Every structure is written in C-alpha cells, then in structure tokens.
Amino acid sequence: MKDNITRILHWGFACLLLVILGIGFYMTRTEFSPFLYQMHKSLGVIFSLLIGIRLYWQIKHPWKLATLKNKYERTIRNVIHCGLMILFFVMPILGLMCSGFSGFGISLFNLEIVPENFNVDGTVEPINEVLYKTAKFFHKLLAKVFAVLIFMHVAAVLKHHFINKDGTLTKMLRN
C-alpha cells in the first residue's frame, strides 16, 4: 500500500511539475496570455498546497534507492534529490511572491486569494517593486535549475534501467 502511495505521489508531482514548468517556459517566450498566466499561477498554488503532503510522506517513508557503490554517484544522487526537494518549496514561494508583490494578486482558478493592487488610475501597481523583481529574477533562474535537475534525474533513471539493469524504473512503474 505505501509503495502505491509513493508511486502516486511521485508520478502525480512529476506530471504536475512538468505541466507547470512547460507552461512557464512557454509563456515567457510567447505573447502575453492571461489564460496561461492564470493556469500557471493556479497550478503553482495547488502545488504549494500539496507539497506538505509530499514532504510528510517522504520523511515517513524514505526512498528505497538503488545501492550505489560509487561514492561519486551517491553524492550526485543526493545533490539532485536534495536540490529537487528544496526547489519544490522555493519555486512556489518565489512564484507567489512574484505574483503578490507585482500587484497582480494571487488566485486559484479565478478564486481570489490575494487581491490585485490598483492605483487611482485603475491600473495594477506593484506592492513592492524591488521584492517583485527580485522574486521574478530568482523564479526564472531557478526554473532553469529545476529543469536541469529533472533532466539529470531522468537521465540517471534511464542509465539505471538500460545500463545497470537494476530495476529502479520498473519498481516505480509496477502496480
């Protein structure tokens, strides 16, 4: 039972994260789309609400990692896993800061959590431009780091599956 919950959490978070990152990278390279920004922010809010469950489960039921004899590979594995877990928390916080301090507020599928900040002219005004720009800078930068860590994680899984043939991927896929 606990292995099934671990799998569901792993693959559920993986899918949600790939959608959020995909939308984020796409929307920063295309014409502004309110729909994409709302979708990205709403999924980010959901992600930030669910991450506590993921962390709790991770602490109560640690990974059954492939045994690595090579100290170098163990270190890389630990850095990647720790990096991913840290970014699970930092990215949503930065995203919420970015949205909140920009004055655009925070909403969950149009359910207002933090209202927009309008000035007397009726345009959105940043609550704190320095914090907004700082959060935005780090949110964008760490999104790239996140993508690299995910790529390294997937590459390591494929190495274990096709080269080491240790059953790591099969364990995460079976019922």
Score class of each variant (00 low, 15 high):
53 I>Q: 03
56 Y>N: 07
58 Q>K: 13
59 I>V: 15
59 I>L: 15
60 K>M: 14
61 H>N: 15
62 P>C: 11
63 W>E: 03
65 L>S: 08
65 L>Y: 09
65 L>D: 08
65 L>G: 11
66 A>F: 01
67 T>V: 14
70 N>V: 00
70 N>Q: 11
71 K>R: 05
72 Y>V: 04
74 R>D: 07
74 R>T: 05
78 N>R: 06
78 N>S: 13
80 I>E: 13
81 H>V: 03
81 H>W: 01
81 H>K: 02
82 C>S: 11
86 I>N: 08
87 L>S: 06
88 F>V: 07
89 F>I: 15
89 F>E: 01
92 P>D: 06
92 P>E: 05
93 I>F: 15
93 I>E: 00
93 I>R: 10
94 L>T: 13
95 G>Q: 09
96 L>K: 03
96 L>C: 04
97 M>W: 13
98 C>K: 08
100 G>C: 09
100 G>E: 06
100 G>S: 14
100 G>Q: 05
102 S>G: 11
102 S>Q: 08
102 S>R: 10
106 I>C: 07
109 F>K: 00
112 E>L: 07
112 E>A: 10
113 I>K: 14
115 P>N: 13
115 P>G: 13
116 E>L: 06
116 E>W: 01
117 N>M: 08
117 N>T: 07
120 V>Q: 13
120 V>D: 14
123 T>P: 01
124 V>C: 01
125 E>L: 08
126 P>G: 10
126 P>I: 10
127 I>D: 04
127 I>H: 09
129 E>K: 14
130 V>H: 08
131 L>G: 01
131 L>I: 14
132 Y>F: 15
133 K>H: 13
134 T>Q: 14
134 T>C: 09
137 F>V: 03
137 F>W: 07
138 F>H: 00
139 H>P: 00
140 K>L: 12
141 L>V: 10
143 A>W: 02
143 A>Y: 06
144 K>Q: 10
146 F>M: 15
147 A>F: 11
147 A>N: 02
148 V>H: 02
148 V>C: 07
149 L>K: 05
150 I>T: 04
150 I>N: 05
152 M>N: 01
153 H>A: 04
154 V>Q: 08
155 A>K: 04
155 A>R: 03
156 A>V: 05
158 L>I: 10
158 L>F: 11
158 L>M: 11
159 K>Q: 05
161 H>P: 02
162 F>S: 12
163 I>G: 03
165 K>E: 09
165 K>P: 03
168 T>A: 12
168 T>Y: 09
169 L>E: 01
169 L>P: 02
170 T>Q: 15
